[in-house]
């Protein structure tokens, strides 16, 4: 069993929101936040932190990084419980944080940015070029920040998190602005780091992009962890399976007839126009798909001489999983506003 580098139990935090009045100009009220969060970050594991906007992902990341101080709960680093509310430096050495959407601008350069952070950490500056090479910024080391692309900015943010080779990496929405090639490279870098024994927590509101990258996921909704574990296990636990998508150049007029003839009348189907083509979406049965059923569906279209030009499983979106886990409607789950927690 790999060791837990960081353990949280019963962590609570609520943002303080200014609510001035004439007699209390500096009055603050308790706003949204996170409640009763417990999680372990284990060496060599990549954990995906997933949830819709406002779920509390960034707040949790900031609490882990020591940028916010929890209202309640316990934090242990390497099994040692922290007593002080202010993080000691040795815990900061263990953590590398990549905040969401850092706005890199101005005439400074990646080299100068990293140089400053090296200096703050009292590290020798002779390895900066090599370090920038590692994140693919070597040739841009002395270009101004203004001239770098969004992808380059993300790489620079990642470089900042990697300084000092921390044991725990907290990456808040790191895929924003990365093209598919860069995402692939990024996933490779993360896997390498995990293989070196780092614990990585990576947040995103897009489940699909994390799916291939993480060992397990934590689902957050309205400031709470609502489910955690392997994505496949969560799916089978809640009976969430991929829908089938078939695309045709023309409309299938006798769709119901084809399905009822082949004893598929129990399947929910929907045909809709999709640009110049027609798409048929077949809802997964509760027990999921087996290969034989998929083959038979394809076969019955072929016997009808209507051959699809595309046949695939539709990726399950975060909203569908959240809907299954919370029991809320798909339409409501992303839009529900959190009520003020007492």
């Amino acid at each position: 069993m790999a060791e837990a580098l960081l353990e949280l139990s019963g962590i609570k935090y609520h943002h303080k929101i200014p609510s001035p009045s004439i007699f209390k100009p500096f009055n603050k009220i308790q706003g949204l936040g996170i409640n009763n969060i417990s999680l372990n970050l284990i060496s060599g594991n990549i954990i995906g932190l997933v949830g819709p906007n406002g779920a509390g992902k960034t707040t949790l990341m900031k609490l882990l990084a020591g940028l916010l101080i929890p209202d309640d709960g316990k934090i242990k680093f390497n099994g040692k419980e922290l007593e002080n509310i202010i993080r000691p430096n040795w815990t900061k050495k263990m953590i590398g944080m990549m905040p969401e959407n850092v706005h890199w601008y101005g005439s400074s350069t990646p080299f100068k940015v990293i140089e400053r952070l090296f200096t703050i950490r009292n590290m020798k500056n002779n390895k900066i070029e090599k370090f920038l090479d590692f994140v693919g910024l070597g040739i841009k080391a002395h270009d101004s920040l203004d001239s770098l692309s969004q992808g380059m900015h993300q790489r620079l943010s990642l470089a900042c998190a990697l300084i000092g080779s921390p044991d725990i990496l907290l990456l808040d929405e790191p895929m924003n602005g990365l093209d598919p090639v860069a995402r692939e490279a990024f996933a490779g870098v993360l896997r390498n780091l995990a293989n070196q024994g780092k614990a990585i927590l990576i947040s995103s509101h897009q489940l699909a992009e994390l799916e291939r990258m993480v060992d397990s996921v934590i689902l957050m909704h309205e400031g709470e962890i609502i489910e955690e574990g392997n994505l496949e296990e969560i799916r089978s636990k809640y009976g969430i399976h991929n829908d089938l998508i078939l695309k045709f150049p023309n409309e299938i007029k006798n769709l119901n007839e084809i399905f009822s003839k082949n004893k598929f009348e129990h399947l929910k189907i929907k045909q809709y126009e999709d640009g110049d083509t027609f798409t048929i979406k077949i809802k997964s049965p509760n027990e999921g798909w087996d290969i034989k059923t998929k083959q038979e569906i394809l076969e019955c279209f072929m016997l009808n001489k209507t051959i699809p030009f595309d046949f695939r499983s539709q990726k399950i979106e975060l909203v569908e999983i959240l809907s299954a886990v919370t029991g809320l409607d798909v339409d409501k789950v992303g839009m529900s506003l959190r009520e003020k927690k007492e």
């Binding site: 900031k62 020591g66 940028l67 900061k92 905040p99």
Partner: peptide, 19 residues
């Protein structure tokens, strides 16, 4: 603070007083 750089600096193992 608005650019996010302060968050990166605050994560570093150096006292905020020195920064």
């Amino acid at each position: 603070k608005n650019s996010g750089l302060l968050a990166i600096e605050f994560c570093q193992p150096t006292s905020r007083t020195i920064l």
